[in-house]
């Protein structure tokens, strides 16, 4: 693949980097990334990956833009209220970098569609706001041996790790989802808007490292931060031999359906 003059200019800051260079930028251009959720996390992930020149970005989200989203979901603007989030995101990406192919799925990710959708991509980004979908992404990606970046934010805190086949998965640490409504969602507990950017940009960085195959991914460790104290920690965790999905004797061999909290269905 040869870059045009405008591509050379657009990606010049990547090409200069020793660990990206021409070869890395080609890998980014050939990359296919699925973003689940065009919300607080999905917004910065989509914008940075589009800016970086990721060749194909899939975005799945069944919601429309709500006024309450705009405090943190920076890919959506005020005139987008009531527009489908995937359409709003697709329009912004087209303006930022028309070379990126965007595939928009205006639907909920579910046990019915997840395998068909993720098989088209190199890596999946979890930008969801609920435990049932986080476990669904984990389980489908482990069963399909598909890398993914986990992310979650609440109030002033965020956490993220990266799964690649053979390494620890979400269920190695968290056995099963908490009962509905035990852990408050962002709409109940609140979230500082800018921490969506803090965590989402870490996820976007992991995706780019994965695509160019450089550095050390956040595998077998969880990065957490508290923005009030501005403390960042990485907690190491190994693959759990008793993990119900990736352990030695898995009890989960197919996808489970967990109940979505009632308030999540409307937002």
């Amino acid at each position: 693949m040869e870059f045009t003059d405008s591509q050379t200019e657009r990606y010049s800051r990547h090409i200069i980097l020793q660990d990206v260079g021409v070869e890395g930028q080609i890998k980014i251009s050939e990359g296919k990334v699925l973003i689940v959720g065009a919300g607080g996390l999905g917004a910065p992930v989509a914008l940075y990956l589009a800016a970086a020149g990721v060749g194909t970005i899939g975005i799945i989200d069944g919601d429309v833009v709500d006024l309450t989203n705009l405090q943190r979901q920076v890919i959506h603007f005020t005139p987008d209220v009531n527009k489908a989030k995937v359409l709003s995101a697709k329009e912004k990406i087209a303006q930022l970098n028309p070379e990126v192919k965007v595939i928009a799925y205006q639907e909920l990710l579910s046990t019915y569609n997840i395998f068909d959708i993720i098989k088209e991509y190199d890596i999946v980004v979890d930008g969801t706001d609920n435990f049932p979908t986080k476990f669904l992404i984990n389980d489908a990606c482990v069963l399909a041996q598909k890398p993914f970046s986990h992310g979650g934010i609440l109030r002033f805190e965020g956490q993220t790790f990266t799964y690649t086949p053979g390494n620890a998965c979400y269920r190695c640490v968290f056995d099963s989802p908490p009962p509905p409504n035990v852990v408050p969602t962002c709409s109940q507990a609140g979230v500082l808007g800018s921490i969506a950017g803090m965590l989402g940009t870490i996820q976007a960085t992991e995706v780019l490292k994965f695509l160019v195959n450089k550095g050390e991914l956040l595998t077998n460790r969880i990065l957490t931060f508290n923005a009030l104290s501005m403390d960042f920690r990485t907690i190491r965790f190994g693959k759990n031999t008793n993990c119900p999905i990736c352990g030695e004797h898995p009890s989960i061999t197919g996808l489970q359906t967990y109940e979505l909290p009632a308030c999540d269905l409307k937002h």
């Binding site: 870059f3 050379t8 200019e9 010049s12 800051r13 090409i15 200069i16 260079g21 021409v22 070869e23």
Partner: peptide, 12 residues
Amino acid sequence: PMTFVKTKIELS
């Protein structure tokens, strides 16, 4: 930075 960018592209 296009000086080094073009150099790197040619080297690649």
